[in-house]
């Protein structure tokens, strides 16, 4: 496979919160047009990895290449140009509450293109129709249900017809039926537009439905990468535990949890010297 077949390449990525290392030496190659799932338990750093990929965090070391160009070394204007070609669905959809659903989906088009309002309207309606929200244009985000918000988030992420789309926990907080609907939608988007999708999740049920390939993260390191079937058959004890849904030893876990809490607190102190009362007043 040549380099051209990979749309996203991660090389030696290290991410830190203060002194605490959250991700260590992450190497990933994501192929054009595939759905790649980042799996892992709570707090293993998978959301941090996603935040690094979309540029919400700057990695402490390493590189992220989109189509062979280093995203981390780009100027702010170049990064904006790359961001126009990516879409992201947040866990809580993150629709702007001050705007109607229609305006939310139309926002990227209005901001980044010089299209006429009539063209924007057609494009927005197509996107809303695509996610099954036709007729809800004038609703405010607060009037939508959780599943509808997720769909609206996908419509907004799709507004600019991106090459790649990132999903943060798409099925979190949804009932199984609605979650399955969102999974189908992710699959449909990928098939229809030949998108590259990167999905962060811990839902085993949706992995089987949507993933072409996946990686399994544990404590900031990649344990295994490959097709879902390969991961399931993987010999690593954590992979077996994760796919077998076996609980960890409770006593060991609670000790580790307390330690992680203490470390986290210390790290937060070091990372953020300015807490309360950092200016006068109060």
């Amino acid at each position: 496979m040549t380099n051209n077949d990979y749309i996203i390449q991660v090389r030696g990525l290290v991410a830190k919160y203060g002194e605490t290392t959250v991700l260590e030496d992450i190497n990933l190659d994501i192929r054009r047009g595939e759905t790649f799932v980042i799996l892992g338990g709570s707090g293993c750093g998978k959301s941090t990895l996603l935040r690094n990929l979309v540029g919400l965090m700057r990695p402490a070391a390493g590189a992220i290449l989109f189509n062979g160009e280093d995203f981390t070394a780009m100027s702010e204007d170049q990064r904006t140009a790359v961001r126009k070609r990516m879409g992201m669905c947040f866990q809580g959809a993150a629709l702007l509450n001050s705007m109607s659903l229609y305006d939310n989906v139309a926002l990227p088009l209005r901001e980044h293109t010089k299209l006429k309002e009539s063209t924007i309207e057609i494009m927005t309606r197509i996107k809303l129709d695509l996610v099954g929200l036709a007729g809800y244009e004038d609703y405010q985000p607060s009037e939508l249900s959780g599943g509808m918000k997720k769909r609206a988030g996908i419509a907004r992420a799709m507004a600019m017809d991106p090459e790649m789309i990132f999903y943060d926990e798409p099925s979190a907080g949804l009932d199984p039926i609605v979650a399955a609907g969102v999974d189908m939608l992710i699959r449909k988007m990928q098939n229809t537009f030949n998108l590259t999708s990167v999905v962060v999740t811990h839902e085993l049920a949706s992995v089987e439905l949507i993933a072409d390939r996946a990686c399994l993260l544990k404590a900031g390191r990649i344990v295994a990468v490959g097709a879902v079937a390969e991961l399931k058959a993987h010999s690593h004890p954590f992979a077996r535990q994760f796919f077998g849904r076996q609980p960890e030893d409770e006593s060991a876990r609670s000790e580790e949890f307390v330690r992680s809490l203490m470390q986290g607190e210390q790290a937060a102190h070091r990372a953020r010297p300015a807490g309360r009362g950092d200016t006068t007043g109060e």
């Binding site: 866990q91 993150a94 702007l96 509450n97 001050s98 926002l107 990227p108 980044h112 907004r156």
Partner: peptide
């Protein structure tokens, strides 16, 4: 309060990912 609650709801992050600078917007 507006900017704070937008930050909590990841709306600021969403703006950034869309390539819309929060200061401008």
């Amino acid at each position: 309060a507006e900017i704070g609650s937008m930050k909590v709801a990841e709306e600021i992050d969403a703006l950034e990912v869309m390539g819309i600078h929060p200061i401008r917007f």
